[in-house]
Structure formats: structure tokens, C-alpha cells
Nucleic acid binder design. Structure first.
Length: 257
DNA sequence: ATGGCTACAGCATGTAGA
């Protein structure tokens, strides 16, 4: 069995203890983090190595974005930038080769800031991701994409009224771009195993977690070869209930060997 | 509809998150 996980930590320096507890309890083989909110050299690594994980971070100056992979199995970093725009300097992508597959961890642009330009960047980013996934699938390469997609794919994926219909997370163009990924043959792992259920991965700070007023925006997409091995998919809400939590909580997917 | 939170840069509030 192979265990993959994704967790938007909303500052790794604030959430290192939460990540450490998650690793020790859930013991994923590969964990992808988003929103490090620090430079590469500022990302804590030692305490995760103490739990048996090797860390590779892609940070950014200015306290924004940032992604990382933590692994207890052998891996090689295959990319630190999403192909399709070499001028993109935002730390939103890391891809590794591990266990005979390619796994990408993403922090997809939110798209609500920066006006029309900010939203266009989100859609362009999604199109770049679609093209990459198309290449991988055309080559029959086992491929997984997991992370914070900043997309509620359908109305089942947000608490009623949690977002206005104009929000970049639910806009028709955003959802069409998501379906573009599905139509290639990528499987939404959590939804595949929990059809029709309201399952969230994010709750805004305040009383929203207690009220279960949440969003499902952290996802795991699997190529056909990996989808056939899908054995489990779940949201781990425990870290969201801890002291001083991230506003997101991990998603875990298990694949048969 | 959103910032009533939270984090960050940097030192006062502005920006961003979603």
C-alpha cells in the first residue's frame, strides 16, 4: 500500500508541530505541503527528518505561497515550476518521481485578488496543468496531482451560501477548467469513494469548523492506472481541531501496491 | 457578500487568503 497526503499548512513555521503530529499518526509515504509562507532556507526540516522524512521545499520570499514534499520513501525532484511559463516565479509547484510514478504537489492560484489579471492567471495556470496532465496520460505515465486546487468542483463541495457565485473558487470558468482535467481521464479520488457526500477540507477561521460551514478545495487527482489501485480516500479532520490550526486539513489517499 | 480571523512584512497598516 502507498499512502499519499496533502496539507495546506498556512505557514510551515507556525504549523511544524501539527505536521509532525500528522506524520507520526498517519504515516503517509509522501506528504505534500502548501502555503509554506517562507523562503526555502527558512523551511524547518530537521524535526521532520527525526520522524523519518526527507524534506524538499520550494519557498518564496515575501511570505507568500511555497510548497514542499516530505517523503519516507526514495524520491527524486523532477520539477519545481509548472511547465508552460518560464517567467512564472511563484512557488506553487513541485513534482517528484517516486514508487514508479510522477506525483505533483500544487498550490493553485486563488484568483480572487488582483482583479481580472489575477483571475486570468488562475485560468492560465489551470490550462498549463491540463496540458501537462494530457502529456502524462498520453504517455501512459502513472500520474497523481494533489494539493490545494482552490476549486469547489460542484455545489456539493461548499456549504450552502458559503461563497457568492462570483467567487473565483466556484465561477463557471473555474469549474469548466476543473472538468477539463476530469475529461482527460483524471479521477477525483475523494469524490470517487464518497459520491454524493458533503465532505470539506477547509473551514474559514471563526466558528465555521464547529458549524461545518466549509469548502472542499484540496484534492487528489489520479491517472487511470493509479485510479485502478485506489483503495482509500479520506479527510483527516483531527489537525483542524487542534490548537492554533491551519484553516485547511489533510486529505489522504491510499493506493494498492 | 464577507474579513468578524490569521499570517506576513516590518513597524502602521496593507495585502492576501477563500
Amino acid at each position: 500500500m502507498l499512502k499519499l497526503a496533502t496539507f495546506n499548512v498556512n505557514s510551515i513555521r507556525k504549523r511544524a508541530p501539527h505536521v509532525r503530529r500528522f506524520l507520526d499518526r498517519a504515516q503517509p509515504d509522501l506528504l505534500f505541503l502548501q502555503e509554506l509562507k517562507c523562503k526555502t532556507e527558512e523551511c524547518p526540516a530537521l524535526e521532520f527528518e527525526g520522524s523519518g522524512y526527507r524534506v524538499h521545499a520550494v519557498g518564496q520570499s515575501g511570505g507568500r505561497n511555497g510548497v514542499a514534499v516530505l517523503s519516507r520513501i526514495p524520491f527524486e525532484v523532477a520539477a519545481e515550476v509548472l511547465p508552460g511559463d518560464e517567467t512564472d516565479s511563484q512557488a506553487r509547484y513541485i513534482e517528484v518521481a517516486a514508487a514508479g510514478m510522477r506525483v505533483a504537489g500544487i498550490y493553485l492560484p486563488n484568483g480572487n485578488s488582483g482583479g481580472d489579471e489575477g483571475y486570468a492567471y488562475k485560468l492560465t495556470w489551470m490550462e498549463r496543468l491540463r496540458r501537462l496532465a494530457a502529456e502524462r496520460l498520453d504517455a501512459f505515465q502513472p500520474f497523481a496531482v494533489l494539493g490545494d486546487f482552490n476549486v469547489c468542483p460542484t455545489d456539493l463541495d461548499l456549504a450552502p451560501g458559503a461563497l457568492p457565485p462570483t467567487d473565483a473558487l466556484v465561477r463557471p470558468e473555474t469549474r469548466a477548467a476543473w472538468r477539463g482535467l476530469e475529461h482527460l481521464g483524471m479521477t477525483d479520488a475523494l469524490r470517487a469513494l464518497h459520491p454524493g457526500q458533503r465532505v470539506y477540507t477547509y473551514w474559514d477561521y471563526g466558528a465555521n469548523f464547529d458549524l461545518n460551514r466549509g469548502l472542499r478545495i484540496d484534492h487528489v487527482l489520479l491517472s487511470p492506472e493509479l485510479a485502478e489501485r485506489l483503495a482509500g480516500a479520506e479527510v483527516d479532520t483531527a489537525p483542524r481541531a487542534e490548537e492554533s490550526p491551519s484553516d485547511h486539513t489533510p486529505v489522504i489517499v491510499t493506493l494498492e501496491a
